[in-house]
């Protein structure tokens, strides 16, 4: 399983991740190696297995979807983590 530079570039664009040429080359060979290893799973017959997304077989804990108010301090602390604020709102760069 050999990945190409173009594939790595395309995947990193999907993941919104800047990579330099050196990284692209390293990841290409390392990921090809890893995919080659995990390919052993194709030898297992799983026709009889139902699909599932997790291994949970117990009762979940559920709750009502209720809004919990934060106090002013908590709000301030949380918003204070953003690099740019304007009048209590988080600033983002232009989209278009």
């Amino acid at each position: 399983m050999e990945l190409t530079n173009e594939q790595i570039k395309y995947i990193s664009s999907l993941a919104k991740l800047n990579l330099n040429e050196e990284e692209i080359n390293i990841y290409k060979s390392q990921l090809s190696n890893i995919l080659g290893y995990v390919n052993q799973l194709s030898e297992i017959n799983t026709v009889d297995v139902n699909e599932t997304i997790n291994s949970l077989d117990f009762d979940y804990v559920l709750r009502e979807d209720v809004v919990e108010d934060w106090n002013e301090n908590e709000k301030k602390e949380t918003l204070g983590l953003a690099p740019k604020l304007d009048g209590g709102q988080i600033m983002v760069r232009k989209i278009l």
Binding site: L3, Q7, I8, I11, S12, L14, A15, L17, Y27, L31, I34, L35, V38, L41, S42, I44, T46, V49, N50, E51, T52, I53, S55
Partner: peptide, 25 residues
Amino acid sequence: ILGTYILSSGHFDAYYKQAQKVRIK
């Protein structure tokens, strides 16, 4: 990158779905 590749169109069934099935086994 590996995760994005595995979940991307055309690879999801071969990798992710098969892995979930083997996980059950």
